[in-house]
Amino acid sequence: MSQQQTKNCITLRGSAQIICEYLKFAINSVLFQRGLYPPETFKAEQQYGITLLISEDPQIKSFLTNLLTQSEEWIVNKKVSKLSLIILNVANKEVLECWDFNVQYEDGDVALSKEKNETVGSKDLKKIQQEIRDVMLQVAATISYLPFLDCRCSFDVLVHAKTDCDVPEMWAEAKPVLIANAQNVQLKNFSTSLHKMETVVSYKLVD
């Protein structure tokens, strides 16, 4: 879990880990809720005080671990501004849905940071987890208004990084996606006092 040195003290890396853990569960939850993969390939897991579903597919697992380890590094170095989970139609590459995870960097507890000689936050972990739970419940509730995906779909995660960021091995530059006639729904935010995570889902409005 997070690297808690003392009570109510979150380091930059610990905060990044919380963010990446949230991303893992959020992406898995979206994949399950939107029915991109068969439900029997998911396994229930208790997290944030609720039951969440995690994919057992080795390909997805390896993809997510690769993605999130690299993303964590970038988040620690403040290189990432946004991660976008895009759901696209495989047949014509049309983007049907886009889940934007906006990362904002905050100062944390300034007094404690000076004391510790590194940037740390002092937010209670339970409170952070409660906030994340609220967001996860909202993600689960989105299925009621998101349009039905009636074609073969797949997903990709785009990382919006700073222009001076190096492109590591196995990574490539992609084009930014744009959904025409999109409807945006802003979900709840949560903050670790070092990072603020903002979740927005935008989907193609069916005429």
């Binding site: 993809f63 690769n66 993605l67 501004s81 946004k82 990709d156 995660v157 785009l158 990382v159 919006h160 990084a161 700073k162 222009t163 960021c165 492109v167 196995m170 990574w171 490539a172 530059e173 992609a174 084009k175 930014p176």
Partner: peptide
């Protein structure tokens, strides 16, 4: 301002 990266 940003560049978009993804796993190959």
């Amino acid at each position: 301002q940003t560049k978009v990266l993804h796993l190959a």
